[in-house]
């Protein structure tokens, strides 16, 4: 009966994952390998294709006037600089949306909403960037990443070429993702791993750690069983997945550093209020 309960939990989290996240790993890998009936993604590999593809990027928060400013005869470098900033803002918009998706997913983890509300906030605040990095991995390969719900493929070289510190944000995530993708987790495994990350009892400032650890322990058992059944030939997969949590903490530290640098150097940039809440006093 206990194993049955753990299987029910795995199924529940997988269903919630499918319900809350618009682009699954299965779909992303199909797009990346060209095995989908949908149109191939629009490829952004330089400033010209970014300018052309900008209309496809999910940017519903940008006011129209701002978009029109590009045609006002600015010199080339200013145009480019504005294009980069606009692109960065649309990334922020999508990230804020993803934060709300992750929050809904967290709320669906059995027992999560019964935790102290302040602890729920702390778990989301400290786990969010880690979760988003894991969710980004299936969209990436060594050459680039899908964005805008899989409609656009942006090359790694192009992202790297953006002016500092924009060009530095993604490179460590690519390095991580290429290795993480080698574990070949599927969407059902990912759902469990995300729940494990969210339920980390060692986040700074938690008021009541015990109930969080109890919940995490249960999801860990469920993940261990699920990985054994889902990947019978992959040795030590459970341990290998858990080891990735150490890399995630380093990635977050780097991310915070770059964002800090951006705050200092990019006077025109204002961070989305929800992302500000998450980044503020984070380590």
């Amino acid at each position: 009966p206990e194993a049955a309960d753990l299987r029910v939990l795995a199924k529940h989290l997988y269903e919630s994952y499918l319900k809350n996240f618009p682009l699954t790993k299965a779909k992303a890998r199909a797009i990346l390998s060209g095995k989908t009936s949908d149109n191939a993604p629009f490829v952004i590999h330089d400033m010209k294709s970014l300018a052309e593809g900008e209309q496809f990027i999910n940017c519903r928060q940008l006011p129209r006037q701002e978009q029109r400013r590009t045609s006002m005869g600015l010199i080339q470098s200013e145009l480019q600089s504005e294009l980069e900033l606009r692109f960065f803002r649309s990334c922020q918009s999508r990230s804020a949306e993803a934060v709300s998706e992750v929050t809904e997913f967290a709320k669906s983890i059995p027992g999560f909403v019964n935790l102290d509300l302040n602890d729920q906030v702390t778990l989301l605040k400290y786990g969010m960037i880690e979760v988003l990095i894991i969710m980004m991995s299936p969209l990436m390969n060594k050459d680039g990443t899908l964005i805008s719900y899989g409609q656009i493929f942006m090359t790694r070289e192009f992202i790297k070429s953006l002016r500092k510190p924009f060009g530095e944000i993604m490179e460590p995530k690519f390095e991580f993702s290429v290795k993480f993708n080698m574990l070949e987790l599927d969407d059902s495994d990912m759902a469990l791993f995300l729940a494990v990350i969210i339920l980390s009892g060692d986040r700074p400032g938690l008021l009541n750690v015990k109930p969080i650890e109890v919940l995490q322990e249960n999801v860990l058992h469920s993940m261990e069983l699920h990985l054994k059944m889902n990947h019978p030939d992959s040795l030590q997969l459970f341990a290998k997945v858990l080891q990735k949590m150490t890399d995630l903490r380093q990635l977050v530290a780097h991310h915070v550093q770059v964002m800090q640098l951006m705050k200092e150097t990019e006077i025109d940039m204002c961070l989305h209020p929800l992302l500000q809440e998450i980044m503020k006093d984070l380590y």
């Binding site: 918009s93 804020a96 949306e97 934060v99 709300s100 998706e101 929050t103 809904e104 709320k107 909403v113 509300l117 302040n118 729920q120 906030v121 989301l124 605040k125 209020p273 929800l274 809440e277 998450i278 503020k280």
Partner: peptide, 20 residues
């Protein structure tokens, strides 16, 4: 609580807000 206003709101709303 004020510091994490939107997160609080997201946690307490039954559906994701559309104002993101």
């Amino acid at each position: 609580k004020e510091k994490h206003k939107i997160l609080h709101r997201l946690l307490q709303n039954s559906t994701s807000p559309v104002d993101l």
